[in-house]
Design a protein around this nucleic acid. Structure first.
Length: 376
RNA sequence: GGGGAGAUACCAAAGCGGCCAACUGGGGCAGACUGUAAAUCUGCUGACUUAUGUCUUCGUAGGUUCGAAUCCUGCUCUCCCCA
């Protein structure tokens, strides 16, 4: 995988670039819709590509391992073929699930033993078998198996956790080098920086992971309860250390404002459930502000969902109609809102990219942020 | 014509002398959601209010009682069964 840096903003750390994988090229900065179990909930892959403009989507090792299982995915020829998405794909390792399965999992040096949230059965994830599973899933970018501690973690735990994640990283790369993707194309393994909100741990973690000369690097363990300014500070610290000629992926972030702030700090890749989950729950992000479509105020608003939006749903349907669908509990409502939000997120990063290339990113960002926070 | 049951807030439906401004659903209104155990979860929903406060409510008119949505009587209406 080759990352090309195409432009940098003169007034910030923002950059525009592109990288190519076996399934195509991705232009950064980019947002990756989350398709945990091989489905971006409520959105056809065709609409994801043609309407929302997605270039790369996520899958999740934990969920796909449990269901439908590695055997079927291998039989299908990998997740791309199984789900009908022929563009780049990234799989998360399950580290975040380890974190969220609090109470039904046990972390040891070997790995993490956990109970399936589906049937309670016991499973063990290790750095090695998580790499193996991701080989079988066949995503273009696969993630190291890490532990994602809560934002409130004490220093002692943050240190212990990060050191273990670092040892797991070595095992991930060992296994990665000993194996190959069964479908004949190359994959990239991204390490993940941890260290909670402790600057010196973040520095040590970033310095540690950069030794692996990976195709790209991820920043994990943020937006997990810490204040946004702290998150931004951690991004600044880490990005000063991560190599400039590799893509940087801020995992699980975030709000539209988070995206612009992180892009300004040199982040290239994002993923977040927010556009889809909040969309399903009636919250729309637009270039003029945030809409809670269930609110009474939209009941007779026959204007388009988002006149500035690029997806067909934005001008085909009215706000009143979308509200009606939500109020009536129709599944089309969440589908429309999800597609709209994904289209908006991708429009936003696309605009960011354009303004970086044109050298106007910083002023454009200053102009956008109040609008993004505004509640319509 | 005879017999029986019932009328509770927007709807449905509990309550059957004080802990009732009234359980619970639904509906309505608002909020939350950040590497998806989420098409989920949380508030509020008689009026006036910051309220631990006051006022008006349980078909309707009276009555019993210190006290009634709850007991008694009349009236109105609804439903069911038999003719």
């Amino acid at each position: 995988m080759q990352f090309t840096l195409e432009a940098t903003d003169p007034h910030s750390q923002a950059r525009a670039g592109s990288f190519t994988t076996a399934h195509g090229t991705v232009q950064t900065p980019i947002f990756m819709p989350v398709g945990t179990v091989g489905s971006v909930k409520g959105v056809f892959h065709r609409d994801l590509r043609d309407e929302a403009g997605a270039q790369i989507i996520l899958g999740n090792t934990y969920h796909l391992y449990l269901r439908p299982g590695v055997e079927l995915l291998e039989k299908a020829g990998g997740l791309h073929r199984f789900c009908g998405w022929d563009r780049p794909m990234l799989t998360d390792s399950g580290g975040f699930q380890v974190f969220s399965l609090e109470g039904i999992r046990k972390i040891t040096e070997q790995g993490c033993r956990f109970q399936s949230h589906i049937d309670g059965s016991s499973h063990l994830f290790t750095p090695e078998n998580v790499v193996d599973t991701q080989r079988s899933i066949g995503a273009d970018i696969i993630m190291a198996f890490d532990e994602c501690p809560p934002g409130t973690a004490e220093h002692a735990y943050a240190l212990k956790s990060w050191e273990r994640t670092a040892r797991w990283l070595e095992r991930c790369f060992d296994q990665f080098q000993k194996t190959a993707c069964p479908y004949g194309y190359g994959q990239s393994l991204f390490p993940i920086v941890q260290g909670c909100t402790y600057p010196e741990l973040r520095r040590r973690s970033a310095e540690f992971v950069r030794q692996f000369n990976a195709d790209g690097y991820a920043i994990g363990g943020l937006a997990v309860g810490e204040p946004a300014p702290v998150m931004y500070e951690m991004i600044d610290i880490v990005n000063e250390i991560l190599p400039a000629d590799r893509p940087r992926y801020l995992m699980g972030v975030g709000t539209p404002v988070n995206l612009l702030e992180a892009i300004a700090r040199g982040v290239d890749l994002f993923d977040c459930v927010m556009p889809t989950r909040n969309g399903r729950n009636g919250m729309l992000f637009t270039s003029e502000g945030i809409i809670n479509i269930r609110n009474q105020k939209w009941a007779d608003d026959l204007s388009p969902i988002d006149p500035a939006g690029s997806a067909f749903v934005d001008h085909t349907y009215t706000r009143a109609y979308l509200r009606h669908l939500f109020v009536a509990g129709e599944m089309l409502g969440p589908q429309i809102a999800s597609l709209h939000n994904l289209g908006f997120y991708l429009w936003l990063v696309g605009q960011a990219r354009r303004h970086i290339v044109e050298g106007t990113f910083t002023e454009w960002k200053a102009h956008m942020i109040p609008k993004l926070e505004h509640r319509l």
